[in-house]
Design a protein around this nucleic acid. Structure first.
Lengths: 205, 205
DNA sequence: GAAATTATCAACCACACGGTTGATAGATTC
DNA sequence: GAATCTATCAACCGTGTGGTTGATAATTTC
């Protein structure tokens, strides 16, 4: 008695799972490319190959759909937080870079959102940042980067630098001649940023 | 016979110059805050204290207004290109940071625009970048930064890092507790980025 | 100061947008 | 297989949008 005797596959006419997935996929692409205000619900539906009403049906409209996406992000984000042997700063940042490339659409959606700065402060963000700065301060004490640098400012630089490929696609193409979404660019750029960080280390251990 | 016996000032009813200026000012603020797609023409007009039709009258509509702004930027941009004694890399970047803070609205408008990546390549941008990379390569030979770094990638990092304050306002507030538009933040952050670059120098001369 | 030009505004318009409605066909349950 | 529930769609709707029109007042020209 399998409770899900589903999958008379492939030609299934009605399939909520698949529809949801298609909508989410299409929305990621559209929001990533044009931002929330610039995206038309009808285009998401068209790209998903689905009636636009289903967006209201499943996600409660455009806004709800966006929230669903950012929620998905939050679940992925915490993934690389607790790796047992804490990697070196260069390796940490390299991982972060490849992360922004792998989840490029979500990264860009987040940036679009952050650019629209309504001035209200997100307490969970503040807490997260505080903890990140704390971590950096520890690393500074370990000699991973010079003492005369302010960890807060450094963190800001790192965030921006790591996301550069998502923020400036034209620059990536003009400067590196590579597709900013490609794995190759991610590897290359991550490696470079890691090297730069490496040069900051004062080699104590 | 002064050809401009104007300025029966202050209470002048009709003043095209002033109107233009007001519209431009309001548009900068609105586009910077909400991006092109998110900005309403009526709100620009309201902020400028002017009838919205005048936007069409003077700039030929929303799009024309945006173009006028980016054109204004291009004229300012070339300002710090030709300083006689070429400053060191840290100083150059510091200046660039304070530039992005001083012209914060224009910077953000540019970023909004760049985020909307339609994939078409801007040949003048490519040329500009090529020349910048060339300059960096020279500096690398002078020992301003290590040989194992790719100038193209470094330039990308620098652009992103320099504009960090314009891109991540919430992070600035959360991390530094400062207003990302304030002179103080600009000074502080520019100094920090300059220091970091300084640590990369291999002190050859 | 009469005529012509220019700057300004209120009202209007066509349209595209996000969302809703009502009908229907596909699944599921009994 | 009848009844019920669920997923899907085509058509419609109210609203907000960028833009235009036509009138009018301020300014400049002669």
């Amino acid at each position: 008695m399998d409770k899900t005797p589903r999958r008379a596959p492939a030609e299934r006419r009605r399939d909520p799972e698949r529809t949801r997935r298609r909508i989410v996929e299409a929305a990621k692409a559209e929001f990533s490319a044009k931002g929330f205000a610039g995206t038309r619900v009808s285009e998401i539906a068209a790209r998903a190959g689905v009636n636009k009403q289903l967006i209201s049906y499943y996600f409660g409209g455009k806004e709800g759909l966006l929230k669903a996406l950012t929620a998905e992000w939050q679940s992925k984000e915490s993934a690389f937080a607790g790796t047992s042997p804490p990697p070196s700063l260069p390796e940490l940042v390299r991982g972060y870079v490849t992360g922004t490339v792998r989840e490029r659409d979500l990264t860009r959606i987040l940036i679009w959102g952050g650019l629209q700065d309504d001035g209200e402060e997100d307490s969970s963000l503040v807490k997260q940042m505080r903890s990140d700065v704390e971590d950096l301060r520890r690393r500074q004490a370990e000699g991973e980067f010079p003492d005369d640098l302010d960890p807060a400012c450094l963190l800001l630089m790192l965030f921006a630098a790591a996301a550069a490929g998502a923020i400036f696609p034209q620059l990536v193409r003009a400067l590196c001649g590579q597709d900013p979404a490609s794995e190759e660019f991610g590897e290359r750029y991550g490696e470079q940023l890691a090297r730069l960080l490496g040069h900051l280390g004062t080699a104590k251990s």
